[in-house]
Design a protein around this nucleic acid. Structure first.
Lengths: 251, 251
DNA sequence: GTGATTCTTTGATGCCGATCAACGTGCTAC
DNA sequence: GTAGCACGTTGATCGGCATCAAAGAATCAC
């Protein structure tokens, strides 16, 4: 029995566990809608370079990231590739209640998503006032994140932007460590993303990004263990370099 | 009689006429909620430099711009001022259903807003499914706009960013000219915003911005009549310079 | 009108970062 | 092992832009 677990219990589909926003959404759904929605979900694993939704395509599916990093990206005629934003665990993608996507959704790391038919998702959410409200709140969060990112891109220098990114990534990591009592003084940050992708996210080139990384290391703000493993040795200095533009909320 | 005009008719409060999103919102409200909400509105006129909501303040009011330009801005300790985004006629501001604002809302031009107590606004909207849905859709629009702006800020060069901004501004102007049958070939764009503010919006300095303006003029893309009046002489070239990153939808 | 104030533009200089090129490093295949 | 490949780093050059400084241009007070 117990085909569809009760509210509050972790939801697992094909070996992939729903958490964060998706779990909260399922939690507030009344039992009947919840039962209706559960079988619609499907898990997909991805690897770097995979394209989940093509630029310009009318997305017929929405999804939640359960693990790994996706990006909204766009490459212009002049072959310049921009990464508009990261999509990190718990985030949603796919333009529910909205028109076609102007951006490609692509994978920057290994990971997994849970996806659902877009129209069915919308229809079910729309039948629960609570769920639709929760959905609205998560869009408001996305909006805040996007604006914060506008702020970051406004800082002219690459080191500043990189410092901001590292802080944001550490916040994400911290967010998922809800078990921990206090923030650790020294943060070992595992970066799952290639240098090129970080560069395109920060609006710079891999070369300049590399220099920025090593500049941060020279000032003692970070220590580069491997290109994918960085130790935030001096968080205060890092914040200072970033320009103090970020709210240090823990959510 | 007819204290509260019927749906579909323009709403006017203290000489200021509601249009765009606010009007649509009022239109979908059932008559009782509409009557309840109408007396809550209050018009405020603003001039450049006026601060409507202070950075960090818990906004107790929301508002819709009916005329002129506002900005979300933030100035860091190092006195650097960033403008995160423009708030143009029909746009909302003030974080309904959300926490304190991390940004200042300030006026960049003369204009007017209609404002309403935030909690009362939320309460009334929440009682109408249609209205809450409409609200959600307008937040989704804001999200798109924010992401588009991330895209623009990603282009390294100032001329490109300026070209994009001019296109966006012309779109706004076109949006309000719903009476006109077709887009005019040659667009006379009145810019209500000071150079410093545009500069801070584009993440550059007034000096560099000035040079960018004149560079656009040299290439024939625009003609500068006065600093506040620009003629988009060659829209195609302007789009080309902008990097084609913008969707040319008319809404 | 005149002067004060505010905004825009122009000029000169030095730094940051884009770009091209080459080299280093780690991984996979075999 | 070695070759090949993908990714990261380093070096050198050059253009764009921030910055400082100062000069037009427009507006307002009076």
């Amino acid at each position: 029995m117990n085909e569809h677990p009760k509210s509050g219990q972790p939801v697992e589909i094909e070996g992939v566990v729903a958490q964060g926003k998706l779990q909260r959404l399922l939690d507030v759904l009344p039992e009947d809608l919840r039962s209706e929605m559960m079988p619609l979900w499907q898990s997909i694993r991805f690897s770097p370079g995979d394209v989940l939704i093509e630029d310009g395509e009318v997305a017929d599916r929405i999804g939640f990231v359960t693990d790994g990093f996706l990006a909204m990206s766009k490459t212009l005629q002049d072959r310049h590739r921009h990464i508009i934003g990261l999509i990190t665990p718990s985030d949603m993608f796919g333009r529910a209640f909205n028109g076609p996507s102007g951006y490609r959704i692509e994978a920057l790391s290994d990971g997994a998503v849970l996806t659902c038919d877009r129209q069915k998702f919308e229809a079910i959410i729309a039948r629960s006032h609570e769920a639709e409200r929760l959905f609205l709140l998560s869009i408001l969060d996305e909006l805040d994140a996007a604006r914060e990112w506008v702020m970051v891109l406004g800082s002219s220098k690459v080191v500043e932007r990189l410092a901001s990114l590292l802080i944001i990534l550490s916040r994400h990591k911290y967010r998922t460590l809800e078990g921990t009592a206090h923030a650790p003084i020294q943060l070992n940050l595992h970066i799952h993303i290639k240098r090129v992708d970080i560069a395109h996210l920060l609006g710079t080139s891999p070369e300049s990004l590399s220099r920025a990384f090593h500049q941060l290391e020279r000032t003692g703000a970070i220590r580069i263990v491997t290109p994918y493993d960085v130790e935030l040795a001096n968080l205060e200095r890092l914040i200072e370099i970033s320009g103090n533009s970020l709210e240090m909320r823990d959510e």
